[in-house]
Amino acid sequence: MEVKTEAVSQLEYNSLREPLIIPEYGRHLQKLIDQVTEIKDKEERNKAAKYVISVMGSLNPHLRDVPDFQHKLWDQLFIMSDFKLDVDSPYPIPSREVLNQRPEILNYPQNFPKYRFYGNNITYMIDVAMKWEEGDLKSALILVIANHMKKCYLSWNKETVEDEVIFQHLLELSDGKINLFKTNEELSNSHNLMKVNKKVSNKSQFNSGNKNTNSKNHKKKTNNNNTKNHKRN
């Protein structure tokens, strides 16, 4: 009875254990690194650290000889030792400050544009056009942008649209710097642009229809072959 009581008293509960720094390696490896950290002789500590690296690499044997992967293992070794391990590393030793450093905030695109049906790419194209020098190339680019805006508008509206509406939107999106009202330019016919949109949608439907037809034909052939083999047997 005393032996059983003593054995129970030696049990460790997860609630009493320290949390694992990198749980993927397990608690046994974490304890091994803690023991290596407490070794007083630096030469022995270096040998033990290399042994721990080999154990960590054995979990991914196809990657353990890759230089980048070796660098990652050494970084993880120092992280799991809570940066207390003093050994000679073949790579720069990471620091706690660098690990906890937050990345810079990304500049996300405009989330709520005034005319969503044009998309963010139109805004980028307009910004590029405004930076170009005056000339035929810039005029041609602006006309291409306006026609693309008209096509996007028709995809969303499904009806005809006057060129003046597109000119007004372009004027607003360019902060008044691109004004096609002053020119005699005319955009492509709405009917022709709608034909292009229909062709694109028909192609996508045709491709999806072919996939479904091919899958159905494959299933029919498989069922027929299974039926023939069953009759032969």
Rank of each mutant, 00 (worst) to 15 (best):
2 E>H: 15
7 A>D: 12
7 A>N: 14
8 V>E: 11
11 L>P: 04
15 S>H: 02
19 P>N: 08
20 L>K: 00
20 L>F: 10
24 E>P: 03
25 Y>M: 07
28 H>M: 14
36 V>I: 11
37 T>N: 10
43 E>G: 10
44 E>R: 08
48 A>M: 06
48 A>Y: 01
49 A>K: 02
57 G>P: 03
64 R>D: 15
65 D>T: 07
66 V>I: 05
68 D>M: 00
70 Q>V: 00
72 K>H: 08
73 L>G: 06
77 L>A: 09
77 L>I: 09
84 K>M: 09
87 V>G: 11
88 D>E: 15
90 P>D: 09
96 R>F: 04
96 R>I: 13
97 E>N: 02
98 V>E: 12
100 N>M: 04
102 R>G: 01
103 P>H: 05
104 E>G: 06
107 N>Q: 15
108 Y>F: 15
109 P>L: 08
111 N>D: 12
112 F>R: 07
113 P>N: 05
114 K>V: 12
115 Y>E: 11
116 R>M: 13
118 Y>M: 07
121 N>P: 03
121 N>C: 12
124 Y>K: 13
125 M>Q: 12
125 M>T: 01
131 K>V: 15
133 E>M: 07
138 K>E: 14
141 L>F: 13
143 L>E: 04
145 I>W: 06
149 M>E: 03
155 S>H: 11
158 K>Y: 14
160 T>P: 00
168 Q>R: 10
169 H>A: 01
169 H>S: 01
170 L>S: 01
174 S>F: 02
177 K>L: 12
178 I>C: 04
183 T>H: 00
183 T>P: 02
187 L>E: 01
192 N>H: 12
193 L>Q: 13
196 V>E: 09
197 N>E: 09
198 K>Y: 08
200 V>A: 14
202 N>C: 01
206 F>Y: 10
212 N>D: 10
212 N>T: 09
213 T>P: 00
213 T>F: 07
217 N>E: 14
217 N>K: 11
217 N>M: 06
219 K>A: 14
222 T>F: 06
222 T>R: 07
227 T>Y: 04
228 K>G: 04
230 H>C: 00
231 K>W: 05
232 R>H: 03
232 R>I: 03
